[in-house]
Design a protein around this nucleic acid. Structure first.
Length: 962
RNA sequence: GCCGGGGUGGCGGAAUCCGGUAGACGCAGGGGACUUAAAAUCCCUUGAGCAAAUUCUUGCUCGUGCGGGUUCGAGUCCCGCCCCCGGCACCA
């Protein structure tokens, strides 16, 4: 008889609607015992799904099928992040309505999910573009507005010139637009913001509670960017006081200048008449720079002196005020104190603009470096220094160099002073800077001393006439550079009453001193900025606000929600602002004529609460049912791409905390556990003339099919735009969905980025064929058998298979419940399959064991390949569906049976392997005795004296012998 | 620069949490069977090297980025480096 070949097309079509029709994926939200809320990040429905997307949905489907068999009441919904720019752009280009474009894509996505066997509770399907959903997005806006957490403000915003839209900070990736990668520009606009900064501290602190990948938590931590320090007030000659933020208040005595951001509001007021033109020109130039240009690390530090001075509140010295674009208006106070001796940027700035450098923190090494120019000292100096125990060297041009411990600095200074030539000088840097002259030593502890030392040096050496600061002179000596600037903590120097304070207490003591004197206070600053949410577009949730000439900004009353998107035939570039019928309305407060706000909300607002809506997706009176939500959330396991590590995940946490504060939610973190799956990469081919070429069309030798040019190959994440996608439709047609699913889960650890491999797919295809053939063979042999095997009655082979079965069940169960390394679970299942197949070769094989192992194998394989398993399951004579069958339990007893091979190490190397029963191997003394009695071990030990034996139960025995 | 993750065969990767036979599983390669042939399928084989043996082997040495350390034993732990990937980045 010719065996029936594996035909996935037939098998899969047979079961494709079975699970849905049986309602296995419908959550029973009103019975929340043993609830499990599993959630995949909902997709933006654009175009078609490719094999890379499968990483997310197939993984999720496998987990959910496992959970269902484990008896969980699983909520596993799916919806659509349906507002957004691509739909609108497609609509503008093709003249279709974005809604039609979006729903056509959604239909396509759903078709592909069905083909994959990826099932959801479709009764809960939601789309953010439906009025029944965005009504509540608008409601959240109103609630934020009520609490003062939504506000309108004018300011510099990120602007993508290509998308012609503003961007939130989180949507600017390395100075570029997150969608189109264009360099982002700055624009002065009045926009709506959400005050996410009010939640900065909680968003940071509560990360601790989350079972999230460490790197995602770190990314959020860095993004929130908490810094502790102080705010210090600097009086100015013009009267205004400038407040700066610093993390290093202990360096205040070294602040020799102030720098304001070009956008700082007080710049005009502080600018002297004669500097006005230069300052204005500088500010205008800074304004024109894109974010990429302005924040380029290699850029020379530019800036302009405003012509007036401030007073350093600690030293009471006059210090110049500058504007420079390395200071950002959006962080801290938009103004800094320049401490060139202990901040790398300030040091660069001081060097290029001739500003004095005053060291106020001792060099961490506890060492000083001595430099004496050639011809500046008498010949006995080296010897005299050596007499102090200081090793002395010299440069190529004859200058003297030495390192000395701090303690003998004063002694060294007097030794040097006595041995300088008449016009000689020397520098000692590290413990502050000392400039040694024949008649005195000037310690540079203030701007005044710096000026004096500089003029003396210039008077001595005409070659220094051009130098503007002592720092410039010393910087010219390469050997001193390491000692001129450092940003470490250390004992304070030249710091008036606080001089000598050790580094560990420096910040705390300085802040206390500042507070006592009323000069400043401890302060915390965050990098996080408020969330800019308004978009000048059509395809989004309209902002529910009315502008009334008499009443000002008036929120739309809740009863009037939703503010519907107007139906239009054509969408203009200006979005809602292009639609006159939408704009004019009446003021809800005074009844007079008024205008609607024409902005729509960032799509990330839509997605910041959707996980709540799934609980009661059709509720018309509330955004969600709070009782049910509080029983079902937080989400137990959230799976999605790491690209949302900051954006969506931060916003969703913020909105959750807000709704918690409002009293709607009892929890304040939406996602208890997060898993981020890796991207799938594939070679992408680039032709300089014909651009992206689909891999399939590429000619041998990586040539362009159109022009024959050699193509540039790069292995990158699958994407439609690079044409390097693998189509699930084609895979399913050729191998079936089970093969694609299995390969997707087997290709590597799910969290890692991995390259798609056609050969790998074929390996999984071969496996399923072997599995199919073996299963049918076993079914025909074990037809009619219904009893379970008796483990005690099995032979050695059977017993080994029995143990293997239980070990595999254990392994697979633990992977699903733990770290989700399903690739290793698949490997274990393959091993079991291989062992079952070789056991089945024995004509004497126990049919009860064959059937039992196959039955359990089908169950544990079913989350990976549900179609083939459902088929085999029913051919085994089962009447219930796989999903109605409990997940197999493993028997610890079975794992303790049979034999194990115990390696025996002699002097650290494995020399012998001994087979012992698992029972014997579990007792260290028994194991040790057995091993020492083994003939080949005795042979090895002949002539040696045993010094030590280590027996590790079930693992190995290690013998030390001489 | 800062933060995070990682470096294991020809390749993807196992073993890393909690030290205990390194290379599971799969791919690719080599050899063979079947076939007129090919595809498909099946079987054997594959870290590097050395020695004895000669045929079904046996034994030894080396081997998890580099250098040290702890230990009976290190891919795993500790210290110091190098390199790669990801995130942030003139954040005061």
């Amino acid at each position: 008889m010719i065996p029936e070949p594996y035909n996935p097309q037939v098998v899969e079509e047979k079961w494709r609607d079975f699970w849905r029709e049986r309602g296995f994926f419908k959550a029973k939200t009103h019975e929340p015992q043993r609830k499990f809320y599993y959630l995949n990040m909902f997709p933006y429905p654009s175009g078609k799904l490719h094999a890379g997307h499968g990483r997310n949905y197939i993984l999720g489907d496998a987990i959910v099928r496992f959970l269902l068999m484990r008896g969980w009441n699983v909520l596993n919904p799916m919806g659509w992040d349906a507002f957004g720019l691509p739909a609108e752009n497609a609509a503008i280009e093709q003249g279709v309505h974005p809604r039609d474009w979006t729903w056509a894509n959604i239909r396509e996505f759903k078709r592909q999910f069905r083909a994959w066997g990826v099932e959801y509770d479709w009764d809960r399907e939601i789309a953010t573009c439906e009025p029944g959903y965005y009504k509540w997005t608008q409601w959240i806006f109103l609630k934020l507005y009520e609490r003062g957490l939504a506000y309108r403000a004018k300011g510099k915003v990120n602007w993508c010139p290509h998308c012609e839209v503003v961007l939130a900070n989180e949507q600017v990736i390395g100075g570029r637009c997150w969608r189109c990668n264009s360099p982002v520009e700055k624009k002065e606009l009045e926009q709506w913001y959400f005050r996410i900064t009010a939640y900065a501290e909680r968003l940071l602190k509560d990360l601790e509670k989350l079972d999230w990948p460490e790197h995602v938590k770190k990314m959020q931590e860095n993004w929130i960017g908490r810094s502790e320090g102080a705010e210090i007030v600097f009086p100015t000659e013009k009267g205004a006081e400038i407040k700066v933020f610093t993390t290093r208040p202990d360096t205040l005595w070294g602040a020799t200048f102030l720098v304001l951001a070009p956008e700082h509001p007080w710049v005009p007021e502080l600018t002297a008449l004669e500097q006005r033109a230069a300052v204005e020109a500088y500010r205008a130039a800074a304004d024109r720079l894109t974010e990429v240009e302005r924040t380029s690390t290699e850029k020379e530090k530019t800036g302009v002196f405003v012509g007036t001075y401030a007073i350093n509140p600690a030293t009471r010295e006059r210090i110049p005020i500058w504007v420079a674009d390395y200071v950002l208006m959006g962080y801290g106070t938009g103004a800094i104190m320049g401490v060139p001796a202990h901040d790398e940027r300030d040091f660069q700035f001081a060097l290029s603009h001739g500003l004095p450098v005053i060291p106020v923190i001792a060099h961490p090494g506890g060492e000083i470096r001595i430099f004496v120019p050639a011809d500046a000292f008498v010949s006995s100096l080296p010897q005299a220094l050596r007499a102090l125990g200081i090793p002395v060297g010299s440069t190529k041009d004859g200058a003297l160099l030495a390192n000395a411990p701090t303690e003998i600095m004063d002694k060294a200074a007097s030794v040097i002073r006595e041995r300088l030539t008449e016009k000689g000088w020397a520098a000692m840097v590290g413990q502050g800077w000392q400039i040694v002259f024949p008649d005195e030593v000037i310690s540079i502890g203030s701007v005044a001393e710096e000026r004096r030392a500089l003029s003396r040096l210039k008077a001595i050496d005409p070659a220094l006439a051009e130098k503007r600061t002592v720092a410039e002179i010393l910087w010219a000596v390469p050997a001193l550079r390491d000692f001129l600037f450092h940003a470490e903590f250390g004992p304070m120097l030249n710091s008036g009453p606080l001089s000598g304070t050790p580094g560990a207490e420096a910040v705390r003591k300085t802040v206390a001193w500042l507070e006592e004197k009323g000069l400043g206070n401890a302060a915390v600053t965050y990098k996080l900025r408020d969330w800019l949410i308004s978009r000048q577009r059509y395809w989004g949730a309209p902002i529910p606000i009315i502008h009334c000439p008499r009443c000002g900004i008036v929120p739309v009353p809740e009863k009037d929600l939703p503010v519907l998107l107007p139906e239009v035939n054509r969408i203009g570039k200006l979005g809602l602002a292009d639609i006159p019928g939408f704009i004019s309305t009446t003021c809800p407060r005074c009844g007079g004529p008024a205008q609607r706000d024409t902005d729509t909300m960032d799509t990330f607002v839509d997605s910041s609460w959707y996980f709540l809506r799934f609980i009661s997706p059709k509720d018309e009176d509330r955004p969600f049912d709070p009782d049910l939500v509080n029983r079902w959330l937080p989400v137990d396991l959230y799976v999605g791409g790491v690209e949302h590590a900051i954006l969506h995940l931060l916003y969703a946490r913020f909105i959750t905390k807000f709704l918690h504060d409002l009293g709607w939610l009892s929890f304040d973190e939406p996602f208890k556990k997060l898993f981020t799956q890796g991207m799938v990469t594939y070679p992408a081919y680039w032709c300089p003339t014909h651009h992206w070429i689909p891999p399939k069309e590429v000619l041998p030798g990586d040539r362009c099919p159109k022009c024959g040019a050699e193509l540039e190959v790069s292995v990158v994440a699958m994407s439609k735009s690079k044409k390097n996608v693998v189509s699930p439709d084609e895979l399913i047609a050729q191998y079936g969905a089970d093969t694609e699913r299995l390969y997707t889960l087997f290709m590597g650890p799910p969290e890692k980025e991995i390259e798609w491999s056609e050969e790998g797919v074929r390996g999984c295809w071969r496996f399923l064929n072997r599995f199919w053939n073996m299963a049918l063979a076993i079914i025909s042999r074990a037809a009619g058998v219904r009893e379970e095997p008796d483990p005690q009655a099995l032979g050695t082979q059977g017993r080994a298979l029995w143990t293997k079965l239980h070990a595999t069940v254990k392994k697979v169960t633990e992977e699903f419940e733990g770290r989700l390394a399903l690739n290793t679970a698949v490997a274990a299942i393959m091993e079991l399959t291989n062992e079952l197949a070789s056991y089945a070769e024995d004509r004497e094989a126990d049919p009860r064991l064959l059937r039992s192992v196959l039955r359990n194998l089908v169950l544990i394989l079913s989350p990976f390949t549900p179609f083939i398993c459902e088929e085999i399951w029913h051919r085994l004579g089962e009447t219930k569906a796989v999903l109605e069958t409990p997940w197999p339990e493993y028997d610890p007893q079975a794992l303790a049976e049979g034999e194990v091979e115990i390696p025996v190490q002699i002097n650290g190397k494995v020399r012998v392997r001994v087979r012992v029963s698992r029972a014997a191997a579990s007792d260290p003394q028994v194991l040790q005795d057995l091993v020492l009695a083994d003939p080949s071990v005795r042979e090895r030990l002949r002539g040696l004296r045993i010094e030590k034996v280590v027996a590790v139960p079930a693992k190995l025995v290690s013998i030390v012998a001489r």
